[in-house]
Design a protein around this nucleic acid. Structure first.
Lengths: 205, 205
DNA sequence: GTCTATACACCGATAGAC
DNA sequence: GTCTATCGGTGTATAGAC
């Protein structure tokens, strides 16, 4: 068993805590102002530091965006276990539930959604490590969907992200597209030829 | 009949031509670099002016974005007449054709698509006049679609824009989502209960 | 190691000469 | 209408105190 020296541990923990503090501040700024319009001064003000001090924790502004990008996808990954408990077994109900869960996640935070799904920050490309988080989340979602064919997956992502994008753009905070999810997923399930009635469970009432 | 003085007319035409020159340059910069990363110096360089001179034609950088926003939607409006000629009569075929035409329009220009559909520029809101152009295009599209219910329209826009957004984000220049349009539109047509076989035209072969 | 202080190049925008 | 000069603000980077 490996024992890490206490002092180095405390330092590393402090450093990591500061990093997270900066990222939290960056998210607040991005949400209140805008993601692309975020400035290091705003972030520094919010954590009570001078702007150049941020460079002790992040190599550049894009490095902050990169960490935020990875955080956003890891947030999604962390949500998945709690989602799985809610997932019904019948494929049709499952398609709807996953769509609603992901929709709600996407719509809950415009800045996060834009960072994850829209390329809006000039000269920002996620690092391989950050991009890996998005791939991990993508394949995790895939695991719990009754979809095998790549075309089916592509259609599903287009449907869900399309509904979410319209909701964010034309009725933020509303339900105009959100309430269409069951209907859209049902018509997709019909196209897939999924059985219309869930198999009755073997347990009695 | 009102006759405008020739001199004033020539001046106005010259002014308008310069305005269009600036906007063309702005579009080129937005396409080559990025929409949000556009700078007035880049635009000014391309039209051979000093940056402050742009303020003789536009009140601010956002005013340039606003004019571009209106141009983009007017571009779409101008395309519609040529689209109408291509539109088949059967509702199902029509759903597909309009989707493909709009999809191709959206995917053809990322910067234009982002300006029209994604709110990525900090502190930019389209002016009422520019927004009116988008409403005009929206209702024009509606006229040529076999859709009456608002929910149906909302689903249609979500489907088409969702497919386009995925294409731009994950396979720019490719066909991965574009070739799914007929299938998605067919499943939507099934959901709408549109007749499966077009009524045979009254003309003989 | 982390901070403050400061310099640099660039941005949008304004004032005023011509 | 276009220019030069200039302003405040921004991202980046370095120097140096502690």
């Amino acid at each position: 068993m490996v024992v890490v020296s206490p002092k180095r541990n405390r330092l590393a923990e402090r450093r990591e805590a500061t990093r997270l503090e900066i990222l939290d501040a960056a998210w607040e700024v991005a949400r209140q102002d805008s993601l692309a319009g975020l400035t290091l001064r705003q972030v520094a003000d919010r954590v009570g530091m001078q702007p150049p001090s941020l460079y002790s924790h992040f190599a550049s502004k894009n490095a902050i965006y990169d960490a935020m990008f990875e955080q956003a996808w890891r947030n999604l990954l962390e949500q998945v276990p709690s989602w799985i408990e809610q997932l019904p077994n019948p494929p049709r109900a499952r398609l709807i539930k996953v769509a609603e869960l992901y929709f709600d996640f996407a719509v809950a935070d415009l800045a996060r959604h834009q960072l994850m799904n829209v390329n809006i920050i000039p000269n920002f490309e996620p690092s391989p490590q950050a991009y890996a988080a998005s791939l991990e989340a993508y394949s995790m979602m895939r695991t719990y969907l009754p979809l095998s064919d790549q075309d089916d997956i592509d259609i599903y992502t287009a449907l869900v992200s399309g509904l979410g994008a319209q909701q964010l753009a034309n009725d933020p905070g509303g339900q105009r597209w959100r309430r269409l999810i069951p209907r859209v997923m049902t018509m997709f399930a019909d196209d897939l030829g999924l059985p219309r009635n869930e198999p009755s469970p073997p347990e009695s009432s």
